[in-house]
């Protein structure tokens, strides 16, 4: 029934539009106008609209920055994250400045030079000096950003270790994460998908002596201030281990091991005391109470950021950053491979 009504409405809409066009045609004919020709009046209207749009665009940019910057990620909770964020801020200033320089000029020119019958445009085909300037100036700005970016990248990807990093394996499968700690020796035993059997969910080679003290867990706990070397594997398709609060991400690719290292710098307990985070949590909880959902306390997250199938949108795990002692206590409670298999 709704289908028939929809079709009827659509047909009527098209007929109405056709009739309106007919009226429109006759009226332009009566006024002896050629509809498609752009008149001075059109140019005037459209020029003003362009100017108006330019202003509205700039105003709404500032409005969005004001209204929505608070919903973006809070301060980074890792050492390299601070570096990434300062590079991000500088790049952002550069692009916002460019945006505020170029867009207003574009819309201003559109309005200022709107056409009129009695005007004639300037014949101005090129100016080598001008063109040289706007090739060289962006080149210099970009050179600075490139060098800064490359330095940051190499600092992040090849960190210098003062302490030995804790090795943690993140194993991805549709649609969950499994964690393996390297244990006492801080070395992960060999593992392969072909060895997966029953309780041996990540396919550890039990004959490899290095694996005996490995611990398979369903949570991530990390000590604050110690570098952590994550090694990523996947059982089935490509996943991506995204830890936005730490400004960390790496794909998990079946058939190979990838890695990413960072040092958590703020504990979960401390970040919950951060003023911005508390304001954020308060806003979120207000929304959740309205909908009758349970209240929320802030947590660090590991989420999947490479489409991996129907459950992709809910492939998550909490990350707990805590003091060295709390971490040691928690880890001691976890069972080793030797104990479980």
């Amino acid at each position: 029934m709704t289908g028939i009504i929809t079709i009827v409405v659509l047909v009527l809409a098209v007929i109405t539009a056709l009739q309106l066009m007919r009226v429109f045609e006759l009226s332009t004919k009566a006024r002896k106008q050629v509809e498609y020709e752009v008149t001075d009046r059109d140019n005037n209207y459209q020029g003003w609209l362009m100017l108006l749009f330019g202003i509205a665009m700039i105003v709404s940019l500032f409005w969005m920055l004001y209204a929505w910057l608070p919903v973006t990620l809070p301060k980074p909770s890792s050492e390299h994250g601070v570096e990434i964020d300062s590079l991000f801020k500088i790049s952002m200033w550069v692009i916002i400045a460019m945006f505020l320089l170029v867009q207003p000029v574009l819309f201003y020119f559109a309005w200022r030079y709107r056409g009129a019958k009695d005007r004639k445009a300037a014949y101005y085909e090129h100016n080598n000096r001008l063109e040289l300037i706007w090739t060289i100036v962006p080149a210099i700005i970009l050179a600075v950003l490139i060098i800064y970016g490359m330095t940051t990248w190499s600092n992040v990807m090849s960190p210098k270790n003062e302490k030995e990093p804790i090795v943690v394996e993140v194993y991805a499968q549709q649609f969950k994460w499994i964690i393996r700690y390297a244990g006492e020796d801080n070395k992960l035993g060999y593992a392969n998908v072909r060895l997966i059997k029953d309780a041996n969910v990540v396919g550890v080679d039990t004959l490899d002596l290095l694996s005996a003290d490995d611990k398979v867990t369903s949570e991530i706990h990390l000590p604050v201030g110690r570098p952590v070397l994550f090694r990523f594997r996947s059982q089935d398709v490509i996943h991506s281990a995204y830890m936005p609060h730490f400004r960390a991400q790496m794909n998990c690719v079946p058939g190979m091991t990838t890695q990413f290292q960072f040092t958590p710098s703020v504990t979960t307990a401390d970040i919950r005391q951060d003023a911005n985070v508390q304001a954020k949590v308060a806003r979120i909880n207000a929304l959740r109470t309205e909908k009758g959902l349970e209240s929320y306390a802030y947590d660090y997250l590991l989420l999947c950021n490479k489409v991996c199938g129907s459950g992709h949108f809910n492939m998550q795990m909490n990350i707990v950053v805590e003091s060295e002692e709390e971490y040691a206590k928690w880890l001691a409670e976890q069972k080793t491979i030797a104990e479980t298999l």
């Binding site: 059109d42 140019n43 459209q46 020119f109 056409g115 300037a122």
Partner: peptide, 22 residues
Amino acid sequence: AIPSAVKAFNYITTLWKGNIQF
């Protein structure tokens, strides 16, 4: 970004002192 910037600036300069027909 460099050749792209050149293109954008050249478009804008084309509008400058034009007799724009909308």
